[in-house]
């Protein structure tokens, strides 16, 4: 991953060290997270609250609805809803990414980085890597809570590995999008709201109820939006349902989103700084 400005380097003034600089920036972001853990806790809190709400409040009713049998209930719904909650953990984490990127851009320190002979992209990759790690921690916590409330995945080691791979891909893609969105916002307040649609999208897909239960227009949207194939693939991997070509759609969306987010981010970062 190299930024175009890197190509113009002058041989007399040394090379760039994108990996080393990214590691430095990553350490900076991890230190922020460790020192001020309230943000991470808020980000983890949301999917956990939704999980408990949907399992204990709506679980019984929705469970019998989706399974189409009166005998089905909360246990069946846990299996259905947890993949959506897992994906929601990622969308929740990237809200934090957008906020911390926007905060960074308002601070003078980024102007300082821009005047230094460093691999410029490292300012962004530091955020990306930090957020991926933050998401991984959040996912471990949320999956742990899911197991406690009765989630019993049938996945074997290979399926788990594939699920982890998918989640890393989804996180990576959404984080790049969030890094761009965080830069595009002129204030931290805007940045904290701009990715709200990402949190809502799983509801407008197959995350909480099957798309067949939705009215025609909504159903069409639900079946073609990116979160449906992602959630379907994850659900298939964890609980052994059919996946079909959903996996390809899921990967396609991830690649598209990561690439778009990266290019947009890079363009925003290289634009002229202030006046």
């Amino acid at each position: 991953m190299t930024s175009p400005v890197i190509g113009q380097s002058d041989v007399h003034f040394g090379r760039f060290y994108p990996l080393r600089d990214s590691a430095t920036m990553l350490r900076r972001n991890l230190r922020h997270m460790l020192r001020y853990p309230s943000m991470t806790l808020t980000l983890v809190g949301m999917p956990v609250v939704f999980l408990l709400l949907f399992v204990y409040v709506f679980g019984e009713a929705l469970g019998s609805g989706i399974a189409g049998a009166a005998s089905a209930g909360r246990a069946e719904y846990v299996a259905y809803v947890v993949p959506a909650i897992i994906v929601m953990t990622v969308t929740s984490t990237v809200q934090g990414t957008a906020i911390s990127v926007a905060t960074d851009m308002t601070e003078g320190i980024v102007a300082r980085f821009r005047t230094m002979h460093i691999a410029r992209v490292s300012v962004l990759t530091g955020h990306v890597l930090g957020s991926v790690i933050q998401a991984a921690v959040a996912l471990v916590i949320v999956i742990g809570v899911a197991l406690l409330v009765g989630f019993r995945p049938s996945a074997g080691p290979a399926a788990w590995l594939a699920a982890v791979g998918l989640l890393v891909g989804v996180t990576f893609a959404l984080v790049w999008l969030a890094v761009a969105a965080g830069q595009a916002c002129s204030s931290v307040e805007t940045a904290s709201n701009v990715l709200m649609p990402l949190v809502l999208l799983p509801f407008l897909g197959s995350g909480f109820v099957p798309t067949e239960s939705m009215p025609a227009g909504l159903r069409w949207f639900a079946e073609y939006q990116p979160f449906t194939p992602i959630i379907e693939t994850l659900r298939g991997l964890l609980t052994g349902g059919p996946i079909g070509n959903q996996a390809w759609f899921a990967l396609g969306w991830c690649v598209l989103c990561a690439l778009g987010g990266y290019l947009w981010s890079r363009r925003l970062f290289n634009r002229e700084y202030g006046r």
């Binding site: 113009q8 002058d10 007399h12 003034f13 601070e107 003078g108 102007a111 300082r112 005047t115 002979h117």
Partner: peptide
């Protein structure tokens, strides 16, 4: 980049 390698900047707003 050669310029950046040679300069140091302390702006008006603390960086």
């Amino acid at each position: 980049d050669a310029v950046r390698a040679a300069i140091g900047v302390t702006g008006q707003f603390s960086a």
